[in-house]
Design a protein around this nucleic acid. Structure first.
Lengths: 138, 138
DNA sequence: CTCGTGATTGACGCTTACGTAAACGTAAAG
DNA sequence: CTTTACGTTTACGTAAGCGTCAATCACGAG
């Protein structure tokens, strides 16, 4: 080791092994390979081994966030692909804008769902604490 | 028909058939029966037919909201059951409060995910519109 | 009685998102 | 050379969440 210190690495040149990414995001190798099968990741190959670049790493993050939001992998694919779409022709751009409108509507619906649920949880919580008090002051 | 007007129906006495609920929430009969199989709904039976009370209707709404949020049916079950839990003993109440804390954390994580995604969508949108402009003013 | 309408219970099928071996390759370390 | 670590492909298994028949029943209208 050594000499890691102060060595000016060309911006964004770092790469990762599949195991490193898996550890970082706490998923299995199987999961990562599965995402590749579904076209969500396209790591470089050095021989047969997969080499992940910053772009892949970012995409994995986006995929997992999409999962937390309850989107299917297909939906996630369309969302993530929007992020690094080429400028392209007008039809493409209009389509993209339309997709954005759709996804935004979904997300806002979800946020409303979340807010309502949080409200109701707070109510249950108040009930609970009230019940606890009557139990203890008896 | 007729006489529906101004007839004081005993509060919450209305019931629904499975088809009515399915139509209202835009799900299939199969789905509703499946939720019953999983213990999420427990409609009354008149003979063999299911009769749904306001409580069941509310629960169905909660279940579907849970689904939109990406929770599994198992998770939804624990959440929904919290809503009409009996006061119960102290251990129960403490457990409930703990559950609430857990769920709240998840929901807040999700809301943050949503906000980040909305942010990024807005960015993509700006890029798109800029690209459209350069296309048209050329 | 018969028909149509709406309900019921199985039971098998399908997709998604992975888990879980099995069998093999490669390269550095002991 | 053998072990160890890390990677690969192929392939079958599985749980969740329904879809989709098929066969049957009940009931009111004609």
């Amino acid at each position: 080791m050594g000499y890691v210190h102060n060595v000016p690495v060309p911006l964004d040149s770092h790469t990762w092994s599949i195991a490193e990414l898996a550890a970082e995001y706490d998923v299995t190798l199987r999961t990562i390979r599965f995402y590749e099968d579904r076209g969500l990741l396209t790591p470089e190959r050095r021989g047969t081994v997969r080499v992940y670049h910053p772009r892949d790493r970012v995409r994995l993050g986006l995929i997992l966030r999409g999962k937390r939001l309850g989107f299917s992998l297909d939906e996630i694919a369309t969302i993530v692909d929007m992020y690094d779409a080429e400028p392209g022709e007008e039809g493409q751009l209009v389509y993209l804008l339309d997709q954005i409108t759709t996804r935004r509507a979904e997300l806002e619906q979800r946020r409303q769902d979340i807010d309502e649920t949080l409200e109701e949880l707070a109510e249950v919580e108040r009930r609970c604490e009230a019940d606890l008090n009557t139990l203890r002051t008896r």
